[in-house]
Amino acid sequence: MTDRLPHEKGFHVSWDQMHRDSRALAWRLDGKGPDDGAWKAVVGITRGGLVPAMIVARELDIRVVDTISVKSYNHQSQTAAKVLKAPQADMMGDGTGVLVVDDLVDSGKTLELVRQLYPKAHFATVYAKPSGKPQVDTYITEVSQDTWIFFPWDMALQYVQPFRGTD
């Protein structure tokens, strides 16, 4: 048996899959905003939320896009979440009409922090783990808590040994 990565289960997401799942998220959010179904802005949680936020903004024709930078990981170790850069305050208010997008809700600590700042925002993620689901309003795919998601921006193509045999 081969040595495994530090996480028992790995879920590899390709660029194509991320694009499809982000479009599915946009479809689910279409017409659900408070302004006759429209959203006034999209805020991507950096860094992972930038790609799905851009795709959602494009699909829903939302022209106001900003970011909130929250650091909650040091490589693969989770740390206390803290805001490094906030979005434009006059646009955000209490979050009404704002769509906050991230790639994944894991423990929920990042979204919990952002939700405290913008309690009326709508929180959407592409992927959700059970511990974080209470912090997200809309998501596409649930994965188990012990799954590590390998996003395409973290990966490079390379040869992989087969599980059995050498050819």
Rank of each mutant, 00 (worst) to 15 (best):
D3S: 08
E8F: 08
K9C: 06
G10Y: 02
H12T: 12
D21W: 08
S22P: 04
R23Q: 11
L25W: 07
L25Y: 08
K32R: 15
K32G: 00
D35A: 12
D36F: 08
D36N: 14
K40Q: 14
G44K: 07
G49D: 10
V51N: 07
I55G: 01
D61N: 15
I62G: 00
R63P: 00
V65A: 00
S69V: 13
S69L: 09
V70C: 03
V70E: 04
S72A: 15
N74L: 12
Q78T: 11
A80K: 11
A80V: 12
K82P: 00
K82C: 08
D90T: 11
D90Q: 13
M92K: 06
G93W: 07
V98M: 05
L99G: 03
V100P: 02
V100L: 06
V101H: 04
L104Y: 01
L104H: 02
G108D: 06
T110N: 03
L111A: 05
V114E: 07
Q116N: 11
H122G: 01
A124R: 01
T125N: 03
T125W: 04
K129M: 01
S131W: 00
G132W: 08
Q135F: 05
D137I: 03
E142W: 01
E142N: 03
V143R: 05
Q145V: 01
D146A: 05
T147S: 03
T147P: 00
M155Y: 00
V160A: 13
V160C: 08
V160D: 07
P162H: 10
F163M: 11
G165N: 07
T166H: 12
